[in-house]
Design a protein around this nucleic acid. Structure first.
Ligand SMILES: [Mn+2]
Ligand SMILES: [Mn+2]
Ligand SMILES: [Zn+2]
Ligand SMILES: [Zn+2]
Lengths: 138, 138
DNA sequence: ACAATAAATGCACTTCCATTGCATTGGTTA
DNA sequence: TAACCAATGCAATGGAAGTGCATTTATTGT
């Protein structure tokens, strides 16, 4: 069981107080977060630092970006063995129309999508919208 | 074969010169267009008018909005019998990473997506990215 | 330990797109 | 013709993403 510090170092991310805090914040959250969410959680810190931190995490592939159609970019930690490097994020994302939260359904892989002749599929974004388990009340 | 005028009226959209022009512009295009595309095509007209025209078309369900992940909203005419009212846009969208164009693959319906127990799927957005037929050169 | 160096942080500013308020124009109806 | 309402145009706003540069903090070599 690696410490967070060791984990970040193994990914060539220098450990700083801010980075540890943001990493922990992401790890606690069960849902994808926006930059504003992080901003609200760390009011002392500058927006740019938070922005660049999340971008660093993204580059180093410990976080992936989610476009859930709300127009606001969200982020979530990658799962172990996520291998963003090789192919993008194969799991689907669910956006709740009620509580407005977006979560990774890491168990649910995106099915193979057929495209017409002549088209080459490199990458797929699949977002399901509806009511989440918490909001559907069961 | 209805005229465009009759068609717009049947959808409770008042016919104006601008609306006819924009409708024809959309009808000619084989690809989804941005507001800027329309703006460039009609430099005499005000951006707001173009914006509100497309929003009117969207409300009246003769145009659907496409979020292809570029961060810029695109629009395309609905197919006949599209029935946006009942359920959204079941076809998938393809975004070309080379020419940067997005097209409706109206023939390609989105497959049924399974979601975990407790989740209710209301609506699915599926965007495939890759190389389009024109760019793949076949 | 110290100086040199590089990276991280903070502040200010910019850009881009979407959206709105309000005045004006234009078309329809009584 | 007068009254009305919708469409248009202009100006401004807002939100989010991104960048330049100065400052602080950490790392490295001597
Ligand atoms: Mn995810
Ligand atoms: Mn479409
Ligand atoms: Zn919910
Ligand atoms: Zn192309």
């Amino acid at each position: 069981m690696k410490t967070i510090e060791e984990f970040l170092e193994s990914k060539n991310i220098r450990v700083t107080a801010m980075r540890l805090l943001i990493y922990k914040f992401l790890a606690e959250k069960q849902v994808a977060v926006t930059l504003s969410d992080i901003e609200n959680a760390f009011e002392k810190a500058d927006r740019t630092t938070l922005y660049r931190t999340i971008k660093t995490f993204e580059e180093k592939e410990i976080v992936h970006q989610i476009d859930d159609g709300t127009g606001i970019t969200k982020y979530a930690l990658c799962e172990k063995g996520c291998n963003c490097e090789i192919e993008t994020d194969l799991h689907l994302h669910f956006h709740c129309n009620n509580c407005n939260e977006t979560i990774c359904l890491t168990e649910h892989k995106i099915p193979q999508i057929k495209v017409p002749d002549g088209f080459v599929s490199e990458n797929v974004n699949l977002v399901v919208k509806g009511i989440c388990d918490k909001c559907s009340g069961q």
